[in-house]
Design a protein around this nucleic acid. Structure first.
Lengths: 185, 185
DNA sequence: GTCTATATAATGATAGAC
DNA sequence: GTCTATCATTATATAGAC
């Protein structure tokens, strides 16, 4: 009985990288095997439901990242501007300064209204809601805070798309820099 | 010798829909056959190079759409605000008010630095450049116009991503509404 | 130019040894 | 828990009739 080569968290972290760079259909079992270093049989041992279960577990893993990098910083104590700056620093790191794409975008192509589609929707809404709350704290009324948060989410996602497409990370960096004025009154 | 069921332009229009909704890997020949109404053998008659050639031809077709809906309106005669409003009306129609995604995003997952990747990059740059020119016309200096245009591109792309993810087209509508103040001095 | 039928390759998934 | 070997299915692509 060989010892596990990777912890479950390490496996999920690598799966996340494969899915966000290749999408659902582009992430073949052969590629997943290569990128994780695990044989196909090992992967099916960990995820008997195959790719669908991998996606489901990766999205649960993303729940944790979202909580740690976005929700907790934004909903804790402190001044709105300071809390927002923490989130900005975190997502700059998570997206490698704009080099890497967002899994909520990559996986949304395959996702219809199935389980993963619902999950993706919930996660983006949770992110928006957290930004909405700091916007309210800064003095925006309910509707304005909501709209500013949705626009901020679009700025982040759009900057990632454009940065990848034209291979220029500065677009993402400027989007991050504009977030405070975009969200706070 | 049966008569052609579809014109080449109609075929390309349908292929564009398949690729922008499913991405490269998600668009299987079986699905493409279903969505275009053409048998696989017919598809290979029109595109001997298979899916790669389809993508290449679809992107050439997108050149025309881009020229007609974006480049020509923005670089022709007229006041910057009027020209921009024409583009906004055009892309609102092309993306069905935010219902449909952008093929430059959907296909960017498969595209590395191959031919299609280079083409996607060129097309998004051409779009940005056209918006940059109206920004300059409105009084922005070179650098500011460039940055505003990149941010406008990110606004459009991001709004499409968010609108699809949270199933709320109003995000895209508001992004369109903000484009004039975003681009023009 | 389109069709049916088929060849060939890659895919997701499993069995059984260790 | 991981491996090699293999299965069944689906994929891309082609041949040849009409």
């Amino acid at each position: 009985m060989p010892a596990p080569l990777l912890t479950r968290d390490e496996i999920l972290a690598r799966l996340l990288e494969v899915f966000r760079s290749r999408g659902y259909e582009g992430a073949s079992m052969t590629l997943i095997s290569k990128e994780t270093g695990l044989g196909k049989a090992s992967l099916y041992h960990h995820f008997p439901g195959g790719k669908d279960e991998m996606v489901a577990e990766v999205l649960k893993h993303v729940d944790g990242i979202l909580e740690q990098f976005v929700i907790a910083p934004l909903t804790g104590a402190g001044a709105p501007e300071a809390k927002l700056n923490t989130m900005i620093k975190n997502i700059d790191q998570f997206y490698c300064g704009g080099e890497k794409g967002c899994v909520l975008d990559s996986l949304s192509i395959k996702a219809g209204s199935d389980a993963s589609g619902i999950k993706l929707k919930e996660q983006m809404k949770a992110w928006i809601k957290a930004m909405e709350s700091v916007s309210k704290e800064s003095g925006c009324d309910a509707r304005e805070a909501r709209e500013r948060a949705e626009e901020a989410m679009a700025s982040i996602q759009g900057a990632l798309v454009v940065a990848r497409a034209i291979e220029n990370k500065s677009v993402f960096q400027r989007a991050l820099k504009r977030l405070p004025e975009q969200l706070l009154k």
